[in-house]
């Protein structure tokens, strides 16, 4: 068993390291071209997708390691319930506070006390800083859904800390 604090601090460090636009101190050669550079994305977009990508990989792996029977889930709603209960419990030792849907493939998952924002304070003081602490988790949800066989787009929004909403839009293939 690891301590949850450790994950929180690691997450903070990851954000600090990977969010900075053009984080490239001291790397040897200058002519190296990564896909991100090629795409010519702005620093911000790049940072978001890097963190999201990390989350995605973790979510994929986590989805595989959670209870077997859940892998048989084929109904969208069951998959979302799985995220709200099992995945959230595995990560944050609690359940998601709310799950809403328009029955057309869009779901809104609400957490009134999102642990990664909890220590930042309440209200709107640091609201501009909030998005970078959500990218990883968006990727995580998306990755877990991917393991369950669903393609999705996950975005997050915050109106007042530490509450936040994750919007999951299912992609029809």
């Amino acid at each position: 068993m690891a301590d949850a604090v450790l994950f929180e601090f690691l997450h903070t460090e990851m954000v600090a390291e990977l969010w900075a636009p053009d984080a490239d101190p001291g790397s040897g050669s200058a002519d190296r071209i990564t896909p991100q550079h090629k795409a010519g994305l702005s620093g911000k977009k790049k940072s978001w997708s890097v963190l999201e990508g990390l989350g995605f990989r973790v979510g994929q792996a986590l989805g595989e390691r959670l209870p077997r029977e859940t892998l048989a889930v084929r109904e969208e709603l069951d998959a979302l319930k799985f995220l709200c209960k099992d995945l959230w419990a595995a990560m944050f030792q609690k359940h998601m506070d709310g799950l809403r849907t328009n029955h057309q493939g869009t779901y809104v998952l609400q957490d009134n006390n999102f642990p990664l924002l909890l220590t930042m304070g309440s209200g709107s003081q640091y609201i501009e800083e909030a998005p970078k602490f959500l990218a990883f988790t968006c990727g995580l949800l998306c990755g877990a859904l991917h393991t369950l066989g669903f393609r999705s787009l996950v975005t997050a929004s915050v109106t007042a800390l530490p509450a936040c909403k994750f919007q999951v839009v299912m992609q029809k293939s």
């Binding site: 068993m1 690891a2 301590d3 604090v5 890097v50 990390l54 792996a61 986590l62 595995a90 990560m91």
Partner: peptide, 19 residues
């Protein structure tokens, strides 16, 4: 503090090293 399975931490760390 709350205890969690170390899997999440381990996997996250792995993703970070990969990156």
């Amino acid at each position: 503090s709350k205890k969690m399975s170390s899997e999440l931490f381990t996997l996250t760390y792995g993703a970070l090293v990969t990156q």
